[in-house]
Every structure is written in structure tokens, then in C-alpha cells.
Nucleic acid binder design. Structure first.
Lengths: 192, 192
DNA sequence: TCACATTTGGGGCAATTGTCCTAACCTGCT
DNA sequence: AGCAGGTTAGGACAATTGCCCCAAATGTGA
């Protein structure tokens, strides 16, 4: 059965987000699952392997989410706004634990962990998706730069949201980002 | 002598930045100083006490730095640009370890550490300073919001800089932020 | 019944925090 | 010089925790 393995990865995913990778022990993961610590060695040779599995899980889940978004919304701007509003949909989690990707990448960088690059690939998924939508909206040049800019803005809001827990700040920044995206797309339309 | 204590705090400050708070042990701090572990308990009863001292040190150093900046530059915009350019001056450190404040606040939040609020006060120092400069530049309303916005943008750039180590991205974002600040100040000038 | 997959609980080993005790040192006083 | 008191330093030690590994037990399907 792979069900146990999946449950381990799922629980580890949540705990790595809430407590961080280093601060999460085997016991922390085992307890809510009702498993014995030794069981881990059957499914994973080491803690790093669990991390790899968690990152792989996040990569596929994120890709799935972005694929879903591709089919939603009337216009590319609608879909981009959908991305921007993650900050509001996940507000309470972000105020408590920050952005799942940003905090993991930051922690792994400090640990000089080899998986840091794979974690950063999660960012790339978002950048590529945003660039794609911007191009679909008529932004012919510099779409990647604008996409990176949007992602950076989101990350900054997440950091301050975690630091101060200010909902009004989040709402204001989200509105500002949405307006900015709209203006960028409007400016890219061919003169008519 | 307080020299030993100061050296402990100084070394701990650097290590907390480079490796993170939790991942830094007493031994890590003691080794470069040539001290034995037991000695720490004369100066600090616990690791949390060292953290408190490190945060206090950072608060005074940051306040000093901002006070210095107040006397430099011709105009408020010059001084604000000076803040924005920290991202370039500290480029290599930020690409390796992120923003010292942002990463510490994030880590302490995940650990549910009581010192998280004191660490977040470091952000407040920057926000207040930026708001003050914006007001001096003629921004009569919403200066605090603009200051928070600038800080958030900086934080976002720091996160992506750490994730990808892309110097050109940093340079481009810094230029964009400087232009944005200039435009905000220009828009706030009374019509003449 | 047999072979295989899964789970269990324990235990080795290393790292870390925190306590305790002793030795060296400095300084002011007689 | 000699002494007393406080300060600084060093190492031994216990307690805890976490990662990793193993041998045995249990469940499962052919």
C-alpha cells in the first residue's frame, strides 16, 4: 500500500510549512498519524528523502492548480487576478506561517541544503504561468520580467503579513497589484 | 569585562543570519571565539537570552544607521534611494542568506517564539524612517502606506534574490523602485 | 502454507542544552 | 606582600532529543 507513504508526505508537507523543515522531527510526523517512528525507514531512507517527496508533491499539486486556473476566468487578467488573490484566500495561513514556497526556499538556503534548487522550481512554475498569461493578454515583450515582478511583490506582502498580521495592508496591496496588472496589460494593447 | 559578552553577541548575530537561529548551537558560537561552552552560562542563562541580546543589538545598530542616513544625501529622495540600494550594497549576502530581518521574523514566527514581535520592530524602524522622509519630501497623506509598500517590495526582491541569485533581476527591481519613489514624490508636490 | 509487503518497538549514536564544580584572575585593602 | 571578594574561564557530567538502523512480528494474497 502506498497510502501510508502518501499520508506521511501529506502530514510532513503541512508540518514543514507550519513548523519548518528542521524543526519537524519524525516523532512530530508520526504522532498525528499513529505510526511508530521506525516505520519511516521502510518508506524513506532519510529525512531528506521525505523532503524530496514533499517538494515533488508540491510541484505536482501546484502544476495541477495552475492547470485548473488556465481553464477558469474569462480573460488572462481574470486569471492573473486570481493568482494575486491567493494572498487573500490564504490570508490566515500566510499571517501565521508566511508563504509555503518562500519560507521553505529561505530555510533550505540557510541550511545549504541541496534541495533548495528543487524548491525554487516551485517559484518558476508560477513565473512561467504568469508570463504565459501576460503574453496571452497581449504583452509581447518583457512578460517574464513582469511575471517575476508580480511574484516578488506577492512575496513581499507575505513577509510583512507574517510580521505584522495586518489584514488591511494585505487587502490594499492586493488591490494595488491588481490595478498594476490591469494597467500593464492595457498599455500593451495595440493602438486602435 | 563586557568585551566577551559583546563578542558573543556579535558572533551570534552573524551566525543567526547565516545559519538561522535554531540551527546555530552554542558550540557554533563558541568555536570561532575560542571559548568553552560552559562559559556561556555565565553571560547568558539560555539561548533565548542570546537572541534577545542579538535583537537589541540589531535594533540599536539599525537606529544608528538610519540616523546616519538622515544626515546624508541632498534630498529626502536621495535618502530613500539610499535605502532602496541596500539591496545592491548587500547583494551577495542577500543572495546567500536573504534579508536578515525578514528571515529572522519568519523563522521566529514558525517557532512561535515570543521574541518575534521584538524582531518585527526592526521592520517598524525602517517603516517609520521611510514615512518620515516621504513626509519631508512633501507626501502629506498615506506616507506610512507608501513606506510599508516600499519595504514590502524590498522584501519580495530579497526573497527572489535568495531563491535564484539573479543579479540582473535585483538591479532592475531596484531601478524600478527608485523610479516609483520619485514619481510618488513628484505627484505629491503642490501645483505650481 | 509460503512468500512478500508492511509495521512495530527498541536501541545505538551523535548533537545539544543546561548544571555544577574548580581554577585562574583582577582589584582594593591592610 | 598577603588576603578577601567578586569576576571570568574551563571542563566534567546528566538529561534530553533526533536521526538512523535492525530484528522480529504482523498482515496479505497466491
Amino acid at each position: 500500500m502506498t497510502a501510508t507513504r502518501d499520508r506521511i508526505v501529506e502530514t510532513a508537507d503541512a508540518l514543514f510549512y507550519e513548523k519548518g523543515f528542521a524543526a519537524t522531527s519524525f516523532a512530530d510526523i508520526a504522532q498525528p498519524l499513529g505510526l511508530s517512528r521506525g516505520n519511516f525507514y521502510y518508506h524513506f531512507k532519510s529525512k531528506d528523502e521525505i523532503l524530496e517527496a514533499v517538494i515533488a508533491r508540491r510541484l505536482t499539486h501546484t502544476a495541477d492548480l495552475l492547470a485548473t486556473w488556465r481553464g477558469e476566468g474569462q480573460t488572462p487578467l481574470d486569471r492573473i487576478t486570481c493568482f494575486i488573490r491567493i494572498l487573500i484566500r490564504n490570508q490566515s495561513k500566510i499571517m501565521a506561517w508566511g508563504c509555503p514556497v518562500g519560507s521553505l526556499v529561505g530555510e533550505l538556503a540557510k541550511l545549504e541544503h541541496h534541495a533548495q534548487g528543487r524548491a525554487a522550481a516551485l517559484f518558476t512554475l508560477f513565473i512561467d504561468w504568469l508570463a504565459e498569461e501576460l503574453k496571452a493578454a497581449g504583452v509581447t515583450e518583457g512578460a517574464e520580467d513582469l511575471a517575476r515582478h508580480l511574484l516578488a511583490r506577492s512575496q513581499g506582502v507575505a513577509v510583512l503579513a507574517q510580521a505584522f498580521g495586518d489584514e488591511r495592508f494585505i487587502a490594499a496591496e492586493v488591490e494595488e497589484m491588481a490595478r498594476w496588472a490591469e494597467a500593464q496589460i492595457a498599455a500593451a494593447q495595440p493602438a486602435q
